[in-house]
Amino acid sequence: MLHILHGADLHLDAPFTSLPAEKARQRREEQRELIERLTGLARSRGADLLVLSGDLFDSADTYAETTQALCRSLGQTGCPVFIAPGNHDFYGVRSPYTALTWPENVHIFTSPALERVDLPSLDCAVYGAAFTGPAREDCPLSGSQAEPGPRYRIGVLHGEVDGAGRYCPIPREDIAASGLSYLALGHVHACSGLQREGETWWAYPGCPEGRGFDETGDKGCLWIELDAGGGAEAQFLPLAARRYQVLEADVTGRDPAEALLSALPEGCEKDILRVILTGETGEEGVDLTALTALAAPRCYHLELRDRTSIRRDLWDRAEEDTLTGLFLRSMRERLAGAGSGEEREVLELAVRFGLAALEHREEPLP
């Protein structure tokens, strides 16, 4: 059995431009703590290999504290570490990878062609290649096949499965013909789960920390177990200290403050939230400044978006000599004889849906 911890797309020293400057600085510090959490998992779980499939850095413009923290932590994993630089952290003369002397257990692939490293004690060979510029349109797997011999043959690459662009497109047929036991990929920021082409297993772990509202929810790495018979299992391990979440709060018929607070989930104190206010309001609309001040203490950072519409008088067309007028007069009579508040809410909602149907508008949110 071979145990692999697979991570990718850390994007260390990302600018976090959507956050205030002080919080952006704090997030970069937290990314350095992310390195410790990742290598701590390798130690505590007894990983045989730690493979990192590119874009460890967001750019070549990195802070010395970051490269030093990464170098120090990787040297303490207790296992071999393999890095395949990606399009953001491509290998070159100004690469962060050339700034330090790396620990002996860390191997950085530096060539666009596949390179092989043998690990006889693990009955394993690791193949990898690097971006050497911000783009590459070829696939290093094309025309290549892992040599038979070692029981486990691991690939580490940054690229796009089914891609057709500038970021190392990887055809599925090349994966199937690769002869690899497992292909550890980076570039796609969502976890793919364990996939298979031919006899080769492959996966994207996704990024371990979201950096914006296009990277919501739990983020982390993959724990891969390969058995001698060619089987594989994968477990997603959450790593993110903070999550990005996009939520909606319908203010129709409610106090906007109450609607907003009720939309905030439990345990979101560390999270970065975007709340979209929807539904109908009075002519005065919503006070985003006041609502932000009210809810901001309940999370790390809050962004409000106003998508509400002003509620019109439901009955302003009831006297028309039209089908709409007939419908409104009928519903107004039913409302006048309604009993409970719940019955009135249902009837008013029916009026709104009826008007939307008659006027060929989008149905309102219930």
Rank of each mutant, 00 (worst) to 15 (best):
M1E: 06
D9P: 09
L10D: 05
L10I: 13
L10N: 12
H11E: 15
A14C: 13
P15C: 01
P15A: 00
S18K: 06
I35C: 09
I35P: 03
I35L: 12
L38M: 13
A42N: 07
R43H: 15
R45V: 11
D48Q: 07
L50S: 02
L56I: 12
F57E: 03
T62K: 00
T62V: 13
T62S: 03
A64D: 14
S73H: 11
S73V: 06
Q76T: 15
T77H: 01
G78C: 01
P80T: 08
F82V: 10
I83N: 00
I83D: 00
G86R: 01
N87I: 09
N87Y: 05
Y91Q: 04
S95H: 02
P96R: 04
A99R: 07
T101N: 15
N105G: 12
T110S: 15
T110D: 14
E115P: 04
D118W: 12
P120K: 04
C124F: 04
C124W: 03
G128Q: 08
G128M: 06
F131I: 14
P134V: 00
A135V: 15
D138L: 12
C139Q: 06
C139T: 15
P140V: 04
G143M: 01
G143Q: 05
P148F: 02
P148V: 00
Y152K: 03
R153T: 09
R153G: 07
G155W: 12
G159H: 09
V161N: 02
D162I: 06
D162Y: 09
C168N: 09
C168D: 08
P169R: 07
A176I: 11
A177C: 13
L180K: 09
S181P: 00
Y182P: 10
G186C: 03
G186K: 02
G186Q: 04
H187E: 10
S192V: 07
S192L: 08
G193K: 14
Q195V: 06
E197R: 15
E199R: 14
W202V: 01
P205W: 05
C207I: 03
C207F: 01
P208Y: 05
G210C: 01
G210R: 00
G212W: 00
F213N: 10
F213D: 07
T216D: 03
K219L: 07
K219W: 06
G220I: 07
W223G: 10
L226W: 00
G229Q: 12
E233W: 13
A234N: 06
Q235P: 11
F236L: 11
L237F: 01
L247Y: 00
A249Q: 09
D250C: 11
T252I: 03
R254F: 04
A263R: 05
L264M: 02
C268F: 09
K270A: 13
L273Q: 09
R274K: 15
R274Y: 02
V275Y: 00
L277E: 02
G279N: 10
E284G: 15
G285D: 07
D287C: 03
D287R: 02
A290F: 06
T292H: 12
A296T: 03
H301C: 00
L302I: 05
L304P: 03
L304S: 07
D306M: 01
S309E: 13
S309D: 11
L314Q: 09
L314I: 03
D316G: 14
R317W: 14
L323N: 06
G325E: 08
G325A: 09
M331E: 02
G337W: 13
E342D: 11
V346Q: 14
E348S: 08
F353P: 14
L355W: 10
L355D: 14
H360N: 15
E362H: 13
E363A: 13
